[in-house]
Amino acid sequence: MKKYTVRKYQPSDYTFWNDFIGQAKNATFLFHRDFMEYHKDRFEDFSLLVFDEDSLIAVLPANRNEKTVFSHQGLTYGSLVTSGKVKFKETLAALKEILMFLNQAGIQKLHIKELPFFYTGKLSDELKYLLFAANSKLYRRDLFAVLDLSQELKLSKNREEGVKRGVKNNLEVQETHDFTEFWNEILIPNLSQKHKVSPVHSLEEITFLKSKFPEDIRQFNVYHQGKIVAGTTIFETDYVAHSQYISSNSDKNELGSLDFLHYKLISEVFAGKKYFDFGISNENQGKNVNSGLSYWKESFGCGMVTQDFYEVETSNYTLLENVLL
């Protein structure tokens, strides 16, 4: 009979954890400890490792807030990350053991922020089924605007005109390793003026993350007559290029800067990827959609993909005991 055990992550697991993330079937560099820990002062880490006897079969990147554990509040997505060799039966056992471990530790609820399917190289939606079996509550649903790069690119008339304006205005797209111009001249002023907020990552934090993940975090700026007018920060994974930040000055419609930039990224720089992820347009905890932003993304030919957020009572581990017949 197989024996499963669960324990909390500890600093001595650093290499062990990262090696596992590197070969998992449903992980990205966001689950690497260097990425998770850049904001460790803001979150109480409660990441877990699941073993089948001596073999590590799953990890849960997570943080704790009082009697609730989240996977993970500091990340765009989270999941039960499993080995490529793990089958449904082992995934079931891993989730059951995690819920039992949390329950015994006095944790009442586990929140799962779903990893969208298009980020994985192998189809792996079994966790969604298991959360259903554990009587989880769907409490939020966001919409990702995603472009399938295997399909013929079909821009709307408005986007085509924007690209033409970019050509007419002799815009230049440059990749840079320095985020200072974009952060200080475009992104921070825009977010402050329009939404009264700051970027999730400070200039110091994104620069640090770039130093840790130089091939995965990339900055593309747009210049008009030598002056920066727009840019986007890309988080690149094996199958997806994701625009983490998109921003421009007030001349974006006149210059066509954002249309020109993203057309170049989609048709040239990241044409070899499976998907281009423009991210969500949701506000108010998923209850509303910014119609103008959503329309702009869809006019590149994007389809909409959901990301679900689940809450499960840890005492519901008993519901997973009789799933298999």
Rank of each mutant, 00 (worst) to 15 (best):
M1H: 11
V6I: 00
Q10H: 12
Q10N: 09
S12K: 11
D13F: 08
T15Q: 10
F16V: 02
F29Y: 00
D34Q: 07
D34Y: 04
Y38D: 10
H39M: 13
R42W: 12
L48K: 05
V50P: 07
F51I: 06
D54G: 08
A58K: 01
V59H: 06
N63R: 06
N65H: 10
E66W: 02
T68C: 00
F70A: 00
S71K: 04
G78A: 04
L80M: 08
L80A: 01
V81F: 01
S83Q: 05
S83L: 03
K87V: 11
K96H: 10
L102M: 07
N103G: 10
I107Y: 02
K109W: 03
K109Y: 08
K113Y: 08
G121K: 01
D125M: 13
L138C: 13
L143Y: 13
L143C: 12
S150A: 08
Q151V: 07
E152T: 14
L153H: 05
N169W: 02
E175N: 11
T180L: 00
E181C: 01
F182Q: 04
I186L: 11
I186S: 03
I186K: 00
N190T: 07
S198C: 11
P199H: 03
H201W: 09
L203Y: 14
E204G: 02
K210F: 13
P214S: 11
P214W: 13
I217H: 00
N221C: 01
Q225M: 12
Q225D: 15
V229S: 01
A230Q: 01
T232K: 01
E236N: 10
T237P: 06
S250R: 05
N253Y: 08
S257W: 12
D259E: 14
L265K: 11
I266T: 13
I266W: 14
S267F: 02
S267K: 11
A271S: 15
F276R: 08
S281A: 14
E283W: 00
Q285D: 14
N290M: 12
G292V: 04
S294R: 08
Y295D: 11
K297C: 02
S299C: 05
F300L: 07
T318S: 13
L320P: 07
L324E: 13
L324I: 15
L324M: 15
